[in-house]
């Protein structure tokens, strides 16, 4: 059976420059689409993939990733902004590894582009009034 899933991969520092994902195609015949990729301040790598292939191969591929220390999370988590709490300070702008926050000129309102978010969670605790929320 062929399946296709969207997942978030967290690479520890030591794996960031290793060709892990490439082996998924080579050894497990999986197809992937990189939706987003980023490196966090602590140099953890983040990647959102759409991964498809045969169920058996898919499971093996996932096992290969986890045994190598890659943390996997389903992309069912969504980070949203509670606009009632956001004060538009801008503290999140330099925190987000994917640049999901942008300053709008000339109002200096902070825009949040959910589609760029990889749900890394960094902004959730870094936002002073805690306006960013993780939803499942």
């Amino acid at each position: 059976m062929a399946i296709s899933r969207r997942i978030v991969l967290h690479f520890p520092r030591r794996l960031v420059d290793r060709p892990i994902v490439y082996r998924l195609i080579k050894d497990y015949n999986l197809e992937f689409n990189i939706l987003k990729a980023a490196v966090t301040p602590d140099e953890e790598g983040l990647m959102v993939l759409e991964l498809s292939g045969k169920q058996q191969e898919y499971d093996k591929g996932i096992r290969y990733l986890t045994t190598n220390g890659v943390k996997i999370q389903a992309l069912s988590q969504d980070v949203i902004r509670n606009d009632d709490r956001c004060t538009h300070c801008g503290a999140c702008i330099t925190i987000c590894p994917t640049g999901a926050f942008e300053l709008e000129s000339p109002t200096r309102q902070v825009r949040f582009y959910n589609e760029k978010c990889v749900a890394c969670g960094l902004c959730i605790k870094a936002c002073p009034p805690r306006a960013m929320e993780l939803h499942f």
């Binding site: 503290a91 330099t94 925190i95 200096r108 309102q109 002073p128």
Partner: peptide
């Protein structure tokens, strides 16, 4: 170096 503010300019306005 990228900058960020802790004080909200839109709210000051």
């Amino acid at each position: 170096v990228p900058t960020a503010s802790l004080s909200s300019y839109p709210r000051a306005v």
